[in-house]
Simulated assay, not measured.
Amino acid sequence: MTICVLFFQTVLILWSSVQAISEDDFPGWMREINYDDRLNKKSTAIDPTRIIQLSWKPRAFLYKGFLSDEECEHLKNLARDKLEKSMVADNESGKGVLSNIRTSSGMFIEKHHDETVKRIEERIATLTFIPQENGEALQVLKYENGEKYEPHFDFFHDQYNIQLGGHRVATVLMYLSNVEKGGETVFPNAPDDRVKDETWSECAKKGLAVKPVKGDALLFFSLTPDAETDNMSLHGSCPVIEGEKWSATKWIHVNSFDKPNKSSGCVDENVQCGEWAAMGECQKNPSYMVGTDAYPGACRASCRVC
């Protein structure tokens, strides 16, 4: 599976490698094109002309207009009344803990929750050339004024999480809203030759950065082509200065993230299930935590429904 994943990643790179970043070369980079008007809302196909190669180290690509406005609003509405303070994985135990490193609020949407979510997941698989079963559930995040996520890696430092599908090889970060100022995604280890004016936050001037534009999707890889962890993939979410930021993240693993015994319906798919259950998420967010007979939730064991 690892060899296949790396092969298809190479195909993606060759597909989208056309020229270096330039505001003149890429109409829409500064929001002057409404890509929603060009998107077939029912399509899972990929338009390679919308893919911008941002960096080789790390390997990062921007897809303009990946989601329609309707899809963005749908994901926000699914999450709006279920948001909880975000957690981070402890480097030693792998368990989820609260931390000032990450001050957003978020929730997970179960796989195949509805037709819109299913269509987005299929489109992500087409974009990345990685099977849907290798992905985690979509996580929707909301950042309010001053909230941020300090630079971090998406690959793991603990063996507990590595056992669940291996390292995260790729991340698809979808922006569900525009942000008046701040909220950029920044890669502090990656250089950025662009001259950044006052529309960029100071945080975003410390490396390669991408402004959150509603509907756009950022794809980057946390592993190198030879399957080593990539220290250049260090990334963070700059503090929101004006407005609010909504995003949706799909983390994708080297191997299948679906539990082999999922058909039994009595498993936890996320290491944070115990903490979430203790916080009352089984009642607050049953669609994700418990699910249905057709699509069992991610935390059925911790919710004690089996």
Score class of each variant (00 low, 15 high):
L62T: 11
D36L: 06
N161W: 00
E180R: 07
D90G: 02
W276T: 05
I162G: 02
T292N: 08
K196M: 15
K85Y: 04
L141I: 00
L138R: 07
S263R: 11
V305R: 11
G106T: 09
S263G: 10
F220H: 05
T103H: 00
K41R: 06
V97H: 07
N161C: 02
F153D: 04
Q163H: 06
F153N: 09
V210E: 11
R123W: 03
R38G: 01
A170P: 10
A277G: 08
R119M: 13
L14A: 11
A294G: 06
L127C: 03
K111Q: 13
V290A: 03
C282M: 04
A217D: 05
D114F: 09
E84P: 00
E115L: 05
K41E: 14
L6S: 15
G243C: 03
S201G: 12
L6K: 08
Y143P: 09
K82M: 10
A137H: 11
M107E: 01
T128R: 02
L218R: 03
K118S: 13
D293G: 06
T126F: 06
T128W: 00
V305I: 13
P58E: 07
A301P: 00
L39W: 06
Q9P: 05
I162E: 07
A60P: 13
C306H: 04
L173E: 03
V18S: 15
Q19I: 09
F257R: 15
G265C: 08
H113M: 10
L78I: 15
G183K: 06
F26K: 00
L6A: 15
P225W: 01
Q9L: 10
P131V: 02
V97D: 00
L164K: 15
V271P: 04
G183F: 07
A298M: 09
P48E: 07
E121W: 01
T44R: 10
R119L: 14
E84M: 14
G106N: 12
D197A: 05
L127W: 04
D47M: 08
K284V: 04
E115S: 09
D216M: 05
A45Q: 14
C306R: 10
T171P: 08
S247P: 12
E150H: 08
G265D: 11
F129G: 13
M30Q: 10
S302R: 05
M174D: 11
I46S: 14
